[in-house]
């Protein structure tokens, strides 16, 4: 592939992402600013941000991270506490939260990657991290057993609104930014290094890639995005407590990422948003009689994807494309 083509391809993706963002921004008009749907869509797009962020560590670097809500919780609680106790605007607090989440990621990631911990042990450590934070924040000296509420102040200054459309737009913008960061990584040296690490760590190391450094970089970018969004998560929940360090939902994010297809931005976005919307729909219709039906479906999908289609949704898309434009794909590739 030529240099010129690469630029046009990456430009095409950037334009595509911006168009998607523009279309998403118009959705509130299409649904007539219905509060309930806006809440569901805001949550769905928020999960879109999470899963697109997860794609950096899980998709590109191939580390099965199950700690999403460790970083979301920590970043969110830092911003929320700064707001509640010191009256600091979340616009500052969210960046502080992101910074704290990145520091945690570095503190955990540095020794972990330094000692070559990967695969199952990495997944277990990340799952344990959520439980550790959950237990620590449960101590009476920190959050205790109570639910904490944000002060009842509203407006752009606090990112809290009586209705949901402004929050929805804010999440849309962050989603576009998260996708652009992913695109940037995907087409940069870092992205190629990370994919090389995912495919074969030893070979990557032999080629002179600083495996530890790039894995840590991926983990910190992921943690930073999640930590930044933590406050939005708390705004949507309404309260925060030690429960904000949520193990099952951390796993859900990894599940969505895998179903979407490792390393595929479009797959991550589509899988997160579709699964979350279907999940919320099922929860509102069948949730009272069969709680957890949506999670049951996620689980089944994950088993099916794992056994039959390890490339996820992105893989399905590629094979469909191959089926319909067989000649082109063949002509190009070989």
């Amino acid at each position: 592939m030529g240099w010129g083509e690469w630029i046009s391809e990456s430009k095409r993706y950037i334009i595509g992402t911006l168009v998607l963002g523009g279309l998403l921004a118009l959705v509130p008009f299409a649904i007539n600013f219905d509060m309930y749907y806006l809440l569901i869509l805001s949550t769905a797009l928020l999960y879109g941000v999470y899963v697109v962020a997860w794609n950096i560590i899980g998709g590109y670097a191939g580390q099965l991270d199950l700690a999403a809500f460790a970083y979301i919780g920590l970043g969110g609680i830092v911003a929320a506490e700064l707001f509640t106790i010191y009256g600091v605007t979340p616009w500052v607090g969210m960046f502080v939260g992101a910074g704290v989440a990145m520091i945690l990621a570095a503190a955990i990631g540095y020794p972990t990657f330094r000692f070559g911990i990967k695969d199952v042990w990495y997944a277990l450590m990340s799952a344990a991290l959520v439980v550790i934070l959950n237990n620590i924040f449960h101590l009476p000296e920190l959050l205790g057993s109570l639910d904490h509420y944000l002060p009842s102040k509203y407006g752009w200054m606090y990112l809290r609104f009586p209705t949901y459309e402004n929050l929805y737009w804010f999440v849309t913008v962050t989603l576009v930014v998260a996708m652009l960061i992913n695109l940037k990584i995907s087409h940069s040296k870092t992205g190629y290094y990370l994919r090389a690490i995912r495919e074969d760590e030893l070979a990557a190391e032999a080629l002179g890639i600083d495996v530890r450094k790039y894995k840590l970089l991926a983990l910190m970018m992921y943690a930073g995005i999640l930590g930044f969004m933590g406050y939005v998560s708390i705004v949507i929940q309404g309260t925060y407590s030690y429960h904000t360090f949520d193990s099952p939902n951390s796993i859900t994010i990894a599940i969505m990422g895998i179903i979407g297809g490792l390393g595929s931005i479009a797959g991550a976005f589509t899988s997160a948003v579709t699964l979350k919307i279907i999940g919320e729909y099922l929860r509102s219709t069948l949730g009272a009689s069969i709680p957890g039906i949506h999670l049951l479906i996620y689980g089944l999908l994950l088993i099916i994807v794992g056994i039959f289609k390890p490339d996820g949704l992105a893989g399905v898309w590629v094979s469909l494309k191959k089926k319909f434009v067989k000649k082109n794909v063949r002509g190009e590739k070989k």
Binding site: I255, I293, Y298, G299, L301
Partner: peptide, 12 residues
């Protein structure tokens, strides 16, 4: 991934 999915099925 597959066994996490299995666990999710059991739990739910």
């Amino acid at each position: 991934a597959v066994t996490v999915g299995l666990g999710y099925v059991f739990q739910n």
